[in-house]
Amino acid sequence: MKEIVVISGKGGTGKTSLTASFAMLGGKNLVVADCDVDAADMHLLLQPVVKTEEDFHSGYVAVIDKEMCVDCGECAAVCRFEAISLVENHYTVSALNCEGCGYCARICPVGAIAMEEQNVGKLYVSDTKANNIMVHARLRSGADNSGKLVARAKKEAMQIARKTGKEFVIVDGSPGIGCPVVSSLSGADFVVLVTEPTVSGLHDLKRVYELVNRFRIAAGCIINKADLNADIATQIKAYLRENNIILISDLPYDEAFTAAMTMGQTIVEYDAGKLAELLSASWNMILQIITKEQQ
């Protein structure tokens, strides 16, 4: 079983639209995991029917017992996150700022601070219209620990794939290079980088690939909206060659991406023409690459 992770560095390059199309093309051979837990959108295209859901607890938040508190202020003095301050003459925790380190609870002389486990979101296992099983999550707004939720969603997807004998897990990752992205890369067999020929697209591609390269994972790249700027598309291709990143495909700037999304469809459902052909060829190429790696 192989794990394919789709990331982009920059947001809005078409990552989710492409991953959902690959999920359609891969059908019952794969488990799909939406690990862009901050802004999980894939369910809008794959219309999953939820089979199971569970609360996800991770991290802690300090809670001061007002009855026991003697307002000595030692907690506020040790807190490095400005999470404890005087509100109407009583020390109060701002849950948004609390990192859950528990330092305050350890040093409170009267034992008035408890560390409470936080419910940071929900994890779902669903059936999609593409006949795949989908693992998706919803992070409670403003919650911390998205990296851990990503790790949990991936683990669930891998377990399901193993149990049900699926060949692939495809993961839709987050933008950026921080903890959710690092979490999504751990254990991956192949990374699909989605970029666009803009100054930002190229800049962000280089940074995210630097991260991928640290994990020594083989990577391929899809250049979306490739005809938007021929010069930068050429620069991207040169960068790919220098770094042994496989060019999977060039996709045209096409508002069909938006039109399909507006109808709640993947691109391969919406467009039966050239774009669908290109996506189908891209998916076949990804499969070829990872099967070759297996040998």
């Binding site: 901050d38 707004s141 403003g142 911390d144 998205s146 987050s174 933008p175 921080g178």
Partner: peptide
């Protein structure tokens, strides 16, 4: 600000 709704966004908009 960064994208998303988790801790980096909270910090950047706080």
């Amino acid at each position: 600000a960064p994208p998303g709704t988790s801790c980096p966004v909270i910090k950047a908009t706080q």
